[in-house]
């Protein structure tokens, strides 16, 4: 059996899956912008919404957190750097390096915001088929002059198709190397080279094979476009997201 990672689309009857992709794309963008500006109460509200939607999508927390380990490392680095560089009341002093309370609060908020944006991305990619994204991008680009909408939309959908595949392949290559005691190699540069060389080769081979397979099935820019169905739920969802963004910007 194959594996399904955190970013793979999963068919579900969840509310978010039923939304029109165009509305969903706008809602996600509005919420991401709101998250970056939000004060603490609005951040709590957005977090509750995001966790609610994730639960409705049946996102399992343990595999998700495990898949996001490198991202948490990045968040930890952001937190530490903000704690050490923001002036304020000292809470920790080791060998002359001081961490401040204001820095820790600012670091926590920034990490929290990044985490929410990442969660919004995961929710979007798990609940939206790449073909739908392609159709929506094409629809949004329609009024823009001198832009080949079909080609741009194809590039977006291929990127979304390839991202989970690259992650799966990275995991396979990493497991294959760990089974041959790659953990004994302590040099991080050599470790990275050992992982990236076969991964790049495999990714290019897969891209090549997929291009052939798509050509064998008459792939071109000119295809039957996906149909969009808009309901009152889409308008309501858009209204809620607009309201949250307005509150977020006004309260910041």
């Amino acid at each position: 059996m194959g594996q399904v990672n955190a970013f793979t689309y999963v068919e579900s009857r969840a509310f978010i899956n039923t939304l029109d992709v165009r509305y969903k794309l706008v809602c996600m963008s509005l919420l991401s912008l709101a998250t970056l500006k939000a004060s603490l109460p609005v951040l709590i509200l957005i977090t509750a919404m995001v966790l609610g939607v994730a639960a409705n999508l049946r996102v399992r927390p343990v595999p998700l957190l495990s898949a996001l380990k490198p991202f948490f490392l990045l968040l930890a680095l952001v937190f530490i750097s903000r704690s050490l560089t923001t002036p304020g009341e000292t809470v920790l002093d080791v060998w002359g390096i001081t961490a401040t309370r204001q820095g820790a609060v600012a670091g926590s908020l920034v990490s929290w915001r990044f985490f929410l944006v990442m969660m919004l991305g995961i929710i979007f990619s798990r609940s939206t088929k790449p073909t739908g994204v392609k159709g929506a991008v094409q629809w949004f680009l329609r009024p823009v002059p001198f832009v080949d909408q079909a080609r741009v939309a194809v590039m977006v959908s291929l990127f979304l198709r390839f991202l989970p595949m690259i992650l799966l392949q990275a995991s396979e290559v990493s497991q294959a190397q760990r089974s041959r005691c790659s953990a004994l190699e302590k040099n991080p540069i050599k470790q990275m080279l050992n992982l990236s060389t076969p991964l790049l080769r495999k990714t290019f081979q897969s891209a090549d094979q997929m291009a052939d397979a798509m050509a064998a099935r008459c792939y071109s820019d000119d295809r039957t476009d996906p149909e969009f169905f808009t309901s009152t739920c889409d308008t309501a969802a858009l209204g809620v997201c607009l309201l949250i963004m307005a509150v977020s910007f006004l309260s910041s």
């Binding site: 793979t8 088929k129 798509m214 064998a216």
Partner: peptide, 21 residues
């Protein structure tokens, strides 16, 4: 694995007919 492009079984089968417009 390299031939399958759809995100669901239904979408993958529809890929060819969609290309035929």
């Amino acid at each position: 694995d390299t031939q399958i492009v759809g995100e669901t079984v239904f979408d993958d089968i529809a890929f060819g007919p969609e290309n035929l417009k």
